[in-house]
Simulated assay, not measured.
Amino acid sequence: MSATANEAFAVSGKGSEKGGGKGSDKGSDKGAKADQDKTVKRLRPPAAKSVGWALVQAARLHRARVGDRLAALDLFAGQEQVVQALAAAGSMTMGDLAATLRVRPPTASKTISRLAALGFVERRAEAGDGRIVRVRLTETGLAKAAAIERIWDEVEAELLEGFDNKERRRLRKLLRRVARSLAEAAGVTGHEADHEMDGEADDDEADALLGPATDGVATET
């Protein structure tokens, strides 16, 4: 083989090596990306496309959002429900409070003890029967209840941003149907007449009463 031929062969060989190296690197990158995509898909929960999964994620985000604001009131998520229940009822026995919140009496009692230590609630024996203890909010507790109401309104506005009146009512009704279905499956009572408790009208009737929203996101009363 001539010198010229040898040089040409050498150049060709180098080109092949360079070209082969680049092609190999690209192929490896693509293979790695494909493996990564497969891993991500495998890590995705099987129920990610289910209604239940979406509901759980939304509930967690809502709870976290409310919890962040409750911390400023020296309250933990869940305690605000006790404050709200007492604000609505005026005073309650421990048994009534536990039944309202659907928790065990020891759980309700522990929460009340913590709120009492903060000065938010007070316990008094029932007149005529010292065995019965009634719980009520203090003045500080009443102020906390008003603040909690504002927090719920703020998070509610964030939650329903971009929803019009009809969409809000529809969403609320669907969630209540979900709650009733789960309650029936678990044998829990108390969800059957939720729509009657607040006098909610059917969609058509409510539309007639409310009329068209002027801004598309009118606040419900």
Rank of each mutant, 00 (worst) to 15 (best):
E80M: 03
R123F: 03
G67E: 04
M94R: 14
L171M: 10
P46M: 07
H62T: 10
R42N: 07
V66A: 01
A179P: 03
V51A: 11
L73H: 00
A34H: 06
Q84S: 14
K38C: 00
Q57N: 11
A85G: 02
S113K: 10
F163R: 05
D35P: 00
G141M: 05
L171F: 11
I151P: 01
M92E: 06
A47M: 07
R42W: 05
R136H: 11
V56E: 09
R42T: 09
L86N: 00
K49F: 10
R114I: 09
G141H: 00
T93E: 12
R169A: 07
A179M: 08
A127D: 15
I112A: 06
R44P: 01
V82F: 07
K110P: 03
K49D: 13
S109G: 05
R150A: 14
A59N: 12
A98D: 05
A89W: 02
E154K: 08
L182G: 03
A179L: 12
K110L: 09
Q79P: 02
L142M: 13
Q81L: 10
Q81K: 11
E156A: 14
R176Y: 09
V51S: 11
G141A: 07
A64F: 08
P46Y: 07
E126F: 07
A108H: 03
R69I: 01
V40R: 11
G141S: 05
L182Y: 09
E154L: 13
E126Q: 14
P106C: 01
V135T: 08
A89Y: 01
R63S: 09
M94T: 13
A147P: 04
L182V: 13
A72M: 08
A117I: 02
G162I: 01
T39C: 03
D68K: 13
A59R: 13
V133D: 05
V121Y: 02
E161N: 12
D164A: 01
V66D: 03
G52K: 04
A125Q: 15
L61E: 13
L73M: 01
V66I: 14
R134C: 05
E122I: 09
L175A: 10
G130H: 14
V83K: 03
V82H: 02
G141D: 04
E154Q: 13
A72V: 13
E80F: 00
T138S: 06
R168Q: 09
Q57C: 07
N165Q: 12
F163E: 04
K144L: 06
A58F: 06
Q79E: 15
V121C: 01
G119R: 10
R180V: 02
A108T: 02
G162C: 00
P46R: 10
T138A: 07
V178S: 01
A89D: 08
K166Q: 14
R168C: 02
A34D: 11
G90T: 10
L142A: 14
R131Q: 15
E126S: 13
D129N: 15
T111C: 08
P106H: 07
Q79D: 10
A145E: 02
E80S: 03
I148V: 14
E139D: 14
R63H: 09
D164H: 05
H62L: 10
L61F: 08
L174S: 12
A143L: 13
E167F: 03
A64R: 14
R60T: 11
D35H: 05
R169I: 09
K173W: 12
M94V: 14
P106F: 00
A64L: 11
K41Y: 00
L86R: 00
V133G: 00
A108C: 02
